[in-house]
Amino acid sequence: MTTRRATERRRRRRAKRAASRPDRGSLVGHSKATPYVLSAPAILAVSVLLAFPVVYAVWGSLYDTEFIGGPGRFVGFQQYVDLFQDPKFLWSMSRTFVFVFGVLILGMTLGLVFGFALHQVTGGMRFLRGVTIVPYLVSGIATAVIFRLILNQNFGQVNRFLEFLGIPAQAWFSDPNLAMLASILAQVWADLPLAVLLILGGLQLMDPQLLDAAEVDGATGWKRAWRISIPLITPQISLSTILLSYQALTSLGVIIALTGGGPVDATRTLTIALYETAFVDLETNEALAIVVVILLFNALLTLGYVGLSRRYNLDEQ
């Protein structure tokens, strides 16, 4: 009796659910299992290759091993406590902040200038947009090699240009501050296309009538840019900021091939620290704790991204 009533209730609930999704499942020729079978490979790939590693990292960071390959001992958050008391780790954190901040300042400035300039370009010069994207196709390692060549102390074109301006040639990779600047330059070069294209896209979505109205009211170019265009493309500016920080925070190739973290650890960002801890010092558990710290920063950026998409409905655009 009770089972029959339960079955009845279940049936009714199912019918209700089906009714609330009109049109769904109306395609004939499939069983209930079909969508699960179709999506299984993708879900499996994502679970094993993206989701499981995160769980693994968090879990592994709670253990400690006395010797390589030895049994793990549960230590709770001890790895994190040690990390945040380790001056080398704190130094890497501060380097990472300098690096990300530098990339943001330079990247957003150039992104806005280039985005506005490209927006004015019409006709035959539109190929410039295509040119802008080219660094996006270049690997981080290739970017680093290119910058090692153009910043070379003896024959680099940048130093030759500085000498032309009357500034003595600089030792880009032996001076700690200049090495950081070089890393920032290379990273911005690699990722700028993202910012420029996003900002350009935002400018093109703008209603030109707003600018015309401002012009009638006598607003000059700069005023219109600051008071009208910039506020209107706030979503794209914020999105570029997040994407550039994300790229800079998780970049390994550019720095490892450009400076290798040196000189005297001047460019030893968290990513370099992570690589060295894991594959040079072979301290896997400690490295996993660094992974988790980076993932947390990353999660913050992602939260910001989600918030922005919700707020500005970016997906609808």
């Binding site: 590693p53 995160v54 990292a57 390994l252 980076i294 990353n298």
Partner: peptide, 15 residues
């Protein structure tokens, strides 16, 4: 969201 959440850097050791 996952690809943004998990950079290849975080996958390095587990994978």
């Amino acid at each position: 969201l996952l690809p943004r959440l998990v950079p290849s850097l975080g996958l390095m050791i587990p994978l």
